[in-house]
Design a protein around this nucleic acid. Sequence first.
DNA 1: GGGTGCATGTAATGGGTTACATGATTCT
DNA 2: AGAATCATGTAACCCATTACATGCACCC
Lengths: 195, 195
Amino acid sequence: MEVLLGLLAIEPMSGYDLGLTIRESIGHFWNESYGQIYPNLKKLAAEEFVTAKVQRQKGKPDRHIYSITKKGRERLAKWLAVPPQPEVPRNELLLKLFFSAQVTPDLPIAYLERMVATERGLLRRFEQIHEAIDRSRQYPDTPYWKMAARFGELELEAHLRWAEEALAELKELNEMSGRTAIDAAAAKEKRNAGK
Amino acid sequence: MEVLLGLLAIEPMSGYDLGLTIRESIGHFWNESYGQIYPNLKKLAAEEFVTAKVQRQKGKPDRHIYSITKKGRERLAKWLAVPPQPEVPRNELLLKLFFSAQVTPDLPIAYLERMVATERGLLRRFEQIHEAIDRSRQYPDTPYWKMAARFGELELEAHLRWAEEALAELKELNEMSGRTAIDAAAAKEKRNAGK
DNA sequence: GGGTGCATGTAATGGGTTACATGATTCT
DNA sequence: AGAATCATGTAACCCATTACATGCACCC
């Protein structure tokens, strides 16, 4: 709901564009589906937080370009003044890892390797985001946009460092899984005593 | 749903205990409310993934102790074998920061300072979690539990480093906000050219 | 000819939180 | 006396995703 207001405060655009913009520029910390965007735009228009102009097109459907109103800006400012509530995280990968003693270690190993691959790709995307922000020169916004992007970058780096550490340990566990649990525990004791 | 199965695979317990356990040991990456736990336990029992035993108490309501069945373990293993889907993140703080050009910088400054305070507290909690895991000696599980806790730790550290970096920049922006936007932009240009 | 992109929208479905209700005990 | 803890459970509600529907244009 308020994301729409926030983005329209930067620039008027259509519901479709809002979807694209959300995915491309704030997708790493926020998400909104079209099944949410279109009905919410209607509600915002009904309460006069935004106004719509129809733009006819040939061959393609009409575009509804939404602009924020003064009333909308007030509502946005009011929302921005509400301290953000701590989120309830849900990390399925960690949950499965937590229960992985129930299966063989090669399952979590595969998951972490997949995670490393996708996150490495994302890391490169952040460089592009920074460059895009630098090019845009939308003055008062840019420092905030960069901070948000930087957050994603630092978090990703932390994830990758963790994943490497965890993978090393999982592979050790995997090698030991041939022996019995007691042997494995003893081996670990010995190693820890050694250093 | 499957969290319940996973936790009951470690140890039989009541719905109430499941709620406490989730909050205390996996609360940093997963959450489940009682409005979810109790109905789901009923469903799991109806499909024979778990069985219940009633434990009478004086003064307090009866406790329903749930245990996982063979069928339940199979279902858990099957679920663990499904690759975890990448989550849709939602970070309200970052979203508000992203739009903060609409307000004065002291708003995001306050939010980040609050975040730093709460996360520092959490960081200390992680030490306790590690110690608790070390004490428990629940053999095959402990390495996985430690990895999950380590994830939370590293992520927190990354957040804190980011917050310090961002706070420094926000305070700079705040000092400049007395002058006009053009002055501020010019000042930044100069600084960047200087180094 | 068939897939993809543009562009809007609705309906079904599912997931989850919050609030409420109960009732005894223990702590402040 | 009043609040908090133990312990279960239900119902109302909100939010969100997914699937579906439409229809033209463009590319292979």
